[in-house]
Design a protein around this nucleic acid. Structure first.
Lengths: 95, 95
DNA sequence: GGGGGCCATACCGAAACAGCATTGGACGCC
DNA sequence: GGCGTCCAATGCTGTTTCGGTATGGCCCCC
């Protein structure tokens, strides 16, 4: 079964954009440890590391760069799905 | 935060295709009650029902039809993301 | 009116999760 | 070379989430 979760993907995008787990955690209203574990779980599930751990934070590896493109599309598609449903529901119930 | 999960989406697609919670549950190697709750949670999160409950099972409402298109795309994108990462990782480590 | 199919609900034990506290590594400073 | 700092990683714990079992309500068929 699909063990990857949207939360993990969201966490990944935040870390990729911040290059720093702590900052990403604040952005997500989360603390650092669970966020570290999200990334670990994702890497574990994909069978490949996504980041290089540097002294100053996290840097995307080529695998991470590739995943980031898909990750953004997934999140965008989820948003679109929710908007579409609300739109259809509103159109029919609201007139 | 995003409360919709990939599990919910997967459950939705299965029920939509089977028009029957019990059969969808078997397909997902799950039992019927949690699957019923997945659908309920999804409908609750989206703020609109997705299925019409009939005597013989479940029938998609227009909202459900609209969501189904996005749902399939989301799952396909997740699959593509995993394949891409494995491909990039394999290319770099394997030669 | 007993039997079988359907989805929904109550309840419970197990697994997952977030947060706190702490560890461990790398660097800059004095 | 010891010390403070900044980072990610880990041990532990309380809580929440989640799936399974058992059951209920509804309708059709015989």
């Amino acid at each position: 079964m699909r063990r990857v979760s949207l939360t993990h993907i969201q966490s990944f995008v935040a870390v990729a954009e911040e290059c720093n787990v702590g900052r990403a955690a604040r952005r997500l209203h989360l603390t650092q440890p669970p966020l570290t574990r999200h990334i670990q779980a994702l890497e574990d599930e994909l069978g490949a590391p996504l980041f290089e751990r540097t002294r100053t934070g996290m840097r995307l590896l080529p695998t991470g760069e590739a995943f980031l493109l898909h990750a953004r599309r997934i999140l965008a598609e989820v948003d679109a799905a929710m908007l579409t449903v609300r739109d259809v529901a509103g159109t029919r119930s609201g007139g």
